[in-house]
Design a binder for these strands. Structure first.
Length: 575
DNA sequence: GCCGTTTTCGGCCCGACTGTTTTCAGTCG
């Protein structure tokens, strides 16, 4: 049983307990569900390793929940949960994402109308049964209908890197309004989560009416949920929900903090405030009635006795403890990347020539790139064999000479994205690999091998002394493809032993490695490389998404080899 | 149900909005 499955059951137990008007138990289950969902190690492995005792070391897990998890792991069943479900046989998960429907409403719908799932709900809405219920009305009915549509369509989330340009356009437009004194996009966009559900924008203004008028009247607005003087909410034609809030200058920091989240991070901060006899809300930090901080975030964190915490770290994964001790890492900056070590050109499946990419990379402020086209095994991309690779090397020599002549300091490196074959051997000869500056390897086939075999395959590949970087190490594609089954800890260990760099592929729906694994690399002193995996010059801008993910994994400039000058980076790869 | 510079009981984050009411429960972030 996976963490996700365990978390889902615990979450549903919480909902059932809420239905029974239990006051604090639901929160206990809810909390553990969240913790387990975010756990790196499989709970089943934790149990295997240390039994009930180890389970109880998971934050929020006590004797009672530990036993329930044990039962789940051992038998794939939980009698406690099944009894609850027997009493109220409702498909709770089908109601996820229908905004405004919590446990109490779901219970009412079940009791009064016998609604057990989304299908029943849709039928009841269409019959007009919902509005007749006490406590429900036309508006509720409309909301439910909209929720059903939403859930059916998208599951409700967008890949941040793909939707970001749209967010920026709106931000820029609002910024230009003369009534807007300050504007920040908060929420999960500011924390740079991989996917987002909606966008929260905060502005300071003394005259909000024209701003709100403009906001709800934009051409791509599909629907206006609310239009007030302090808050408006819209849905864009793309399906993205955007909220705009106007806050007072003296509360801006507190509001920004509050609307940036994460929720867990905020809860911790509020607890700390309470311990100090203070009260934290989105209006500020208060001692009694008196505001002691909240104008900006720096001041707020200082008043709580800690360092400023970058938004990308605010997940309550230990950042607050470090901030208290004033020992937060200095995260890599968005303009620290000096080179890009994975780029495909029109020699294989990229669309641009090497020279076009060099040109674009220079304009983007880079100092070097590695050309890393696919190898022959990927026939559909016309992958390069040894002979073509040598030809390409000559072309790169020519371009470098040309740059030198013009006294341009930019450097093009010879590289490859060499295929890892099924047995862990490589698609190019050692002789060919030894001629290259940057050797990346990656898996593009046999995704379904079992965990042991897949791990062994990748380990074998990176044990080849010519290998520098393992590209997109887990192979996941967000919202489309699961990661291959591999033991990431084993791979990190092998990378440490062989001096292999692990990549953070910056493509918005890859972000591979993801944040939690990046954090693990850094804890184990394994270096990472943030690469665009560009297949066209337009993709170079995705480097930003990779840096964001690296920051979410607490990476500093020292951890990222392509944030280093080219000489230092190459010297590191040689050793 | 969990947790403890409050160790075996008492407290658990906070405020606002929504839709339905006629003072509030439910939901959300």
């Amino acid at each position: 049983m996976t963490n996700r499955e365990i978390a889902k059951i615990l979450h549903e137990i919480a909902v059932y307990l809420e239905m029974d008007n239990e006051s604090f138990k639901p929160r206990a289950y809810e909390k553990v569900a969240d913790v387990i969902d975010g756990l790196e190690e499989e709970t089943a492995d934790i149990y295997k390793r240390g039994g009930l005792k180890a389970l109880q070391e998971i934050p929020g897990v006590g004797a009672s929940i530990a036993e329930k998890i044990e039962e789940l792991i051992k038998t794939d069943h939980l009698s406690y949960y099944e009894k609850l479900k027997e009493k109220k046989p409702i498909d709770l998960s089908s109601f996820n994402g229908i905004e405004g429907l919590g446990s109490k409403s779901i219970l009412k719908l079940y009791k009064e109308l016998g609604i057990k799932n989304l299908n029943d709900l849709e039928k009841a809405v269409k019959r007009g049964d919902i509005r007749k219920l006490e406590g429900f009305g036309e508006k509720s009915e409309e909301n439910i209908l909209r929720g059903i549509e939403f859930v059916k369509r998208s599951g409700g989330r967008f890949v941040l890197g793909f939707i970001m340009p749209q967010v920026r356009v709106i931000e820029e437009r609002l910024k230009k309004l003369k009534e807007v004194e300050k504007i920040v996009v908060a929420g999960s966009v500011r924390r740079r989560k991989e996917t987002i559900g909606d966008v929260d924008i905060l502005v300071i203004s003394k005259n909000s009416k024209p701003i709100m008028d403009y906001f709800v009247g934009m051409k791509e607005v599909a629907r206006v949920y609310a239009r007030g003087d302090t808050k408006s909410a819209i849905k864009l034609q793309s399906g993205l929900d955007v909220d705009l809030r106007v806050v007072a200058e003296k509360s801006f920091g507190a509001a920004l903090n509050y609307f940036t989240g994460s929720k867990d991070h905020n809860i911790e901060l509020r607890k700390i405030a309470r311990e100090k006899g203070l009260k934290l809300s989105e209006y500020g930090l208060f001692k009694g009635k008196k505001q002691v901080a909240g104008k900006d975030e720096e001041e707020l964190y200082r008043a709580l006795g800690m360092e400023y915490i970058e938004p990308e770290m605010r997940e309550n994964f230990g950042e607050i403890e470090l901030a208290k001790k004033k020992r937060l890492p200095k995260l890599i900056g968005y303009s620290d990347i000096k080179g890009d070590l994975q780029i495909q050109t029109n020699w294989t499946d990229g669309v641009n020539s090497i020279e076009e990419i060099v040109d674009a990379a220079m304009k983007a402020g880079l100092e070097y790139i590695a050309v890393t086209d696919h190898t022959k095994r990927l026939a559909m991309t016309h992958g390069l064999d040894e002979k073509k690779l040598i030809e390409q090397g000559k072309e790169i020599d020519r371009i470098n000479k040309k740059l030198e002549k013009k006294h341009i300091k930019f450097k093009v490196l010879k590289g490859t994205e060499c295929d890892i074959l099924k047995d862990g051997t490589l698609d190019l000869s050692d002789w060919a690999l030894s001629k290259l500056d940057v050797v990346g390897v990656s898996v593009h086939s046999y995704f379904k091998l079992d965990k042991k075999e897949q791990t062994k395959r990748i380990k074998k590949a990176i044990e080849n002394p010519h290998i520098d970087i393992l590209f997109h190490p887990t192979g996941r594609i967000i919202q489309r493809r699961e990661a291959y089954k591999i033991d990431v800890d084993e791979i990190i260990k092998a990378a440490k032993e062989t001096g292999t760099v692990l990549e953070v592929d910056a493509f918005p729906d890859r972000l591979d490695l993801k944040d939690e694994y990046i954090k693990k690399c850094i804890e184990n002193e394994v270096k990472i490389a943030v690469d665009s995996d560009a297949h066209s010059i337009n993709h170079l801008s995705y480097l930003e998404c990779g840096v964001a993910e690296a920051r979410r994994g607490w990476a500093t400039r020292e951890d990222v080899i392509n944030a280093w000058p080219v000489e230092k980076m190459l010297k590191f790869l040689k050793n």
